[in-house]
């Protein structure tokens, strides 16, 4: 099991969450994978994580706080200001992607998730690359 990277994923769709879990802990053999199925007490729960996340994936249509609100909370927090935050969403019409970009997400991965490309893309995000190529 690999200790790095520690990953947080916020996703309220149980199937999408399960796919990500199988990919990260199964295929990629990562040890520190946390999934929140809703976003209440979001920052408090992120602060309680050990180890702290190296990268955060956010679904956009989450309650009570949506992806944009969670991003704002993270960016307002000194510990998470520079953690890569990736939108993982099925809303990938151009307008919506532009909103994500303007809001300050570091990257966007489209659903359906390309699980074959995912390990490489994750590495690139961790290296500080910004990826808006959502066509695959």
């Amino acid at each position: 099991m690999s200790n790095y990277p520690a990953i947080l994923y916020v996703e309220d769709d149980a199937r999408s969450a399960r796919i990500m879990k199988m990919l990260l802990t199964g295929t990629m053999n990562l040890q520190h994978v946390n999934i929140f199925e809703e976003s209440s007490d979001f920052i408090e729960r992120v602060e309680a994580l050990s180890p702290q996340p190296d990268v955060i994936f956010l679904d956009i249509h989450v309650k009570p706080y949506d992806g944009f609100e969670m991003l704002q909370m993270l960016r307002a927090h000194p510990n998470y200001r520079n953690v890569p935050v990736v939108a993982l969403t099925a809303s990938v019409m151009n307008e919506e992607v532009e909103q994500l970009r303007v809001a300050g997400f570091d990257s966007c991965f489209a659903k359906p998730l390309d699980i074959d490309q995912f390990p490489d893309r994750l590495q690139r995000v961790l290296n500080g690359e910004v990826m808006w190529y959502i066509l695959s």
């Binding site: 769709d13 249509h61 099925a90 990938v92 019409m93 659903k111 359906p112 998730l113």
Partner: peptide
């Protein structure tokens, strides 16, 4: 777009 893509995520993956 969102509603059609979400189930495809499950079907494909």
């Amino acid at each position: 777009s969102h509603e059609l893509r979400t189930p495809l995520n499950s079907i494909i993956n």
